[in-house]
């Protein structure tokens, strides 16, 4: 089949960008979306033009590197599917596609469809971990975890950090990504000691990075390739509020412990 692509081209972070139209001829339905772009790029290189820059690595839907907005849907039309796992059979001959990068102040465009998502790493660095220095661990079975918790925790832990939730959110909010990590760790016994500081530290960092706030549109969940549920956002809100309310009590407790 044959498609018309309107691709966002932008040479650098400060350069002005624009849409450029390309034709993708004899596209096979078995191609992945990125393989279709590969073919377009091969053509451009031969012509001595700069290929369309896009992030990608595993091409298996797990590393979270890829991602672009295709006809107004982050990662394209197919549910629970990353761009690299989207196949051309999801489109039909003659389709016209608008391809844009994630758009958010916290995700500045570096080139074409590539954005800088390091804000996500900083959110994790602000509390998205369990402090268990290497070598300090007790036997793995010393702390049983109820299967339900383990499974729910795993549901949240599946987040691949792709940023589609931010791209999809009308407020460019990073709540789903942050909530996924807060929940993944907060649902496990190992994660309890730092539970409150974690929620608080990560949310403060998230705000400082310049994402928008959540008004519960639910677009993030719809765009999330791993189907992370917005209910984790409710859970994080709860933890964040409790972090504040229980603070005094926790400090008092610690005091008694010390005495």
């Amino acid at each position: 089949m044959r498609l018309v692509l309107h691709v966002w081209r932008q040479k650098g972070p400060d350069a002005p960008g624009r849409f450029v139209a390309y034709e993708a001829a004899d596209v096979s339905p078995d191609m992945s979306f990125l393989e279709m772009l590969d073919v377009v790029n091969e053509g451009l290189i031969v012509k001595g033009e700069a290929p369309i820059a896009f992030d990608h690595d595993c091409r298996e839907g797990i590393c979270g590197a890829c991602g672009m907005v295709i006809n107004g849907r982050p990662h394209g039309p197919r549910e629970r599917t990353t761009t690299c796992q989207l196949h051309m059979r999801s489109f039909k001959d003659g389709d016209e596609l608008w391809i844009e990068p994630w758009r958010a102040r916290a995700f500045p465009v570096l080139r074409d469809l590539i954005v800088d998502r390091s804000a996500f790493d900083r959110i994790i660095a602000a509390g998205g971990f369990i402090s268990a220095p290497i070598g300090s661990a007790p036997d793995a079975n010393a702390v049983p975890v109820p299967k339900e918790n383990a499974d729910l925790s795993m549901d949240a832990a599946q987040c691949i950090g792709c940023g589609a939730c931010v791209a999809a959110c009308p407020n460019a909010s990073a709540m789903l990504f942050t909530a996924a990590k807060v929940s993944h760790l907060g649902l496990l016994p190992q994660g309890q000691p730092e539970r409150w500081e974690r929620a608080r530290g990560m949310v403060e960092r998230m705000d400082a990075e310049g994402f928008g706030s959540c008004t519960n549109h639910g677009e993030c969940e719809a765009a999330c390739p791993k189907g992370i549920s917005v209910l984790f956002i409710a859970r994080m809100n709860r933890d964040f509020v409790r972090a504040r309310l229980t603070e005094g009590r926790r400090i008092a407790k610690a005091g008694e412990g010390g005495a």
Partner: peptide
């Protein structure tokens, strides 16, 4: 042996039995 202990401590949500063990 230590690897599994370490990973569990770091919050890796390994598959569990209903008893809560790995």
């Amino acid at each position: 042996v230590n690897i599994i202990d370490q990973c569990a401590a770091l919050g890796v949500p390994f598959a569990r039995e209903y008893g809560g063990l790995l």
